[in-house]
Amino acid sequence: MRRRTRGIRVLVAAVGSTLALGLGTASASASASAAGQGTAAVPCPSGFVCLVSTDGMIRATVMEGATGSLLPAMRAAEITNNTSIWYCVTGTTTRGIAPGDTLFGIDGILVRRLAPSYTGTCPA
């Protein structure tokens, strides 16, 4: 009888481990598929301009009112302006980004500098 109880405990432990591993995999898969749904803005704290590189990592944040130079220049995938002022993005091209706006679909834009624009215009 003792051997049988021991066998059942081992079997229950093995089933429990397999179930835990299966749930962990399902959880990871659900997270991965949720991450791939839609295009979301760059996570960016209030009062900052944030850039995400083409490899998906946040590489730079610039505080509102400050100018940021990126050395070496960074290939940006998305840029979020979570400030109350316009910002000029200088690199491959120069463009403005309005307060509270996010630039999407800019894969490969080379960013060298971020500067505030109190007039809302950027030099060419």
Rank of each mutant, 00 (worst) to 15 (best):
L23F: 13
A73G: 13
T61S: 01
E64V: 03
T67E: 07
A32K: 12
N81M: 08
L114E: 01
M63N: 07
V111Y: 09
T61A: 01
A32M: 10
G7N: 13
G7K: 13
L51N: 04
A98G: 13
M63F: 08
T39Q: 15
A115E: 15
M63R: 13
T18I: 14
V49W: 00
A77W: 01
D101S: 15
D107Q: 12
C88P: 05
A28Q: 08
L110V: 15
N81Q: 10
P43E: 07
P45F: 01
P116F: 10
R9K: 09
D107K: 11
V89L: 11
P43H: 07
L21W: 09
E64D: 04
V111T: 09
G38D: 05
G24S: 14
G47L: 03
T94R: 06
A28K: 07
P116N: 09
S29G: 10
A35R: 12
V42R: 00
R112C: 05
M63H: 09
L23T: 11
G38W: 02
P43I: 07
L51A: 10
I85F: 04
G7Y: 10
T102K: 01
T90P: 00
F48M: 14
G7H: 13
E64T: 02
T80E: 00
M74H: 02
V42Y: 00
T80I: 00
L19I: 15
A26S: 04
T94M: 06
S69Q: 12
R6W: 13
G47M: 04
V10L: 14
R9L: 15
V15L: 15
A60S: 05
T93V: 01
D55V: 14
S17D: 04
C122T: 05
S69R: 13
M57L: 12
P45C: 03
G24F: 10
T102W: 01
V15N: 07
G91N: 06
T121P: 03
V12F: 09
M1F: 08
V52S: 14
L21C: 11
L21E: 05
I85Y: 05
S117M: 07
A98R: 14
T119M: 07
G36E: 14
A77N: 11
T83F: 02
G38C: 08
N81G: 08
G100D: 12
G100T: 11
A76P: 03
G56L: 10
R59H: 07
T121Y: 09
I106W: 02
N82G: 03
S33G: 02
I106R: 03
R113E: 14
I79K: 09
S84T: 15
I79P: 10
A20F: 11
L103A: 09
A124Q: 15
S31T: 11
